[in-house]
Nucleic acid binder design. Structure first.
Lengths: 167, 167
DNA sequence: GTGTCTGCAAAGTCTTTGCACCATA
DNA sequence: TATGGTGCAAAGACTTTGCAGACAC
């Protein structure tokens, strides 16, 4: 695993070539700056299909950029969420989980949450019918309530296969 | 507002006549007991259509039963959630919110969550189409993943009327 | 050079746990 | 009377804030 130290900062940019090109512009467009910690965090988010917690992101990004602090991770995740680039989830285990919008979009899915063992199952069945329903609902709701809908969440809660067997 | 002190405990039961009759049985059926703090908490939950936080429940129930402690509220809410009698929500403001199942059922609705001001708008439009979609999804998912679905959540996130105007 | 960003430490908030006492069935 | 249940205080977990120094543009 390559790491970046402070000495290397001016020489090597992390993930150069692995980062999709628009991020710097997106930040600057909102009046923010692209920095090395932010690049490391984005790198981590782009490379996973899991729903990482702030701590998860920190531990991974820390491998790439050891000087990183947990605070920065929280601040960056909040920033990205506010920018609409990141989805923030709650699965009821007391910590927030995140997924890049661009990843949610290319791999549209929702969640089955086991209330016993807290396991999360991604499913992408029924996505087509769902999309149709959602499209109509979003259209109607945004009109009726003058509410600009940016995102949605659908979760089913229940008891998973394993927990059903073990009880 | 009537309150119940320890002295009255053996004489007056709180909310007698206002409590739907099955609660004692539901608790006992699960090996638990019906107690005065639990009755006070249930009373509060039954009287509101809002999504109360643990603190909210505590403050209200405390008016009825002043000896109540916040810990008991948390424990009772968890118990009811595990029993499947209570819905636990997260609207992204860092505290869990609760709504009695029987109330959700008689007044089926979902939520628009404003990501700017954290306002929650209940809506019950599209519930019929939604119900149909959900029924099929639940059936299919529970079969495919052998997952026993007890509950679901649908939330739309975005910017509300007021926040759109003020930016 | 200026305004933003960062890491550290400390504080804040919500929630859970340990324990001795009390109440329900 | 035997289990649960309760309140208090303390601890725990996640997240946010204050601040001085560092960095991007």
């Amino acid at each position: 695993m390559e790491t970046i130290t402070n000495k290397q900062r001016k020489v090597n940019m992390p993930g150069r070539g692995m980062m999709s090109p628009g991020w710097g512009g997106k930040f600057r467009g909102c009046g923010y700056r692209m920095t090395l910690p932010r690049q490391a965090i984005l790198n981590v988010l782009q490379k996973t299909k899991k729903h990482l917690s702030a701590e998860d992101v920190y531990m991974e990004a820390h491998k790439i950029f050891p000087h990183l602090g947990l605070t920065t991770v929280y601040r960056t995740l909040e920033l990205l969420t506010d920018m609409g680039e990141l989805n923030k989830f709650d699965f009821g285990d007391g910590r927030a989980r995140y997924e890049l919008m661009e990843i949610s979009e290319e791999d549209h899915h929702h969640h089955l949450v086991c209330t016993k063992c807290k396991r999360i199952i991604n499913y992408s069945d029924f996505v087509d019918e769902e999309l149709e329903f959602l499209k109509r609902a979003e259209k109607g709701l945004s009109k009726k309530y003058n509410f600009e809908i940016n995102n949605h969440i659908i979760q089913f809660y229940g008891v998973c296969d394993k927990c059903k067997k073990s009880k």
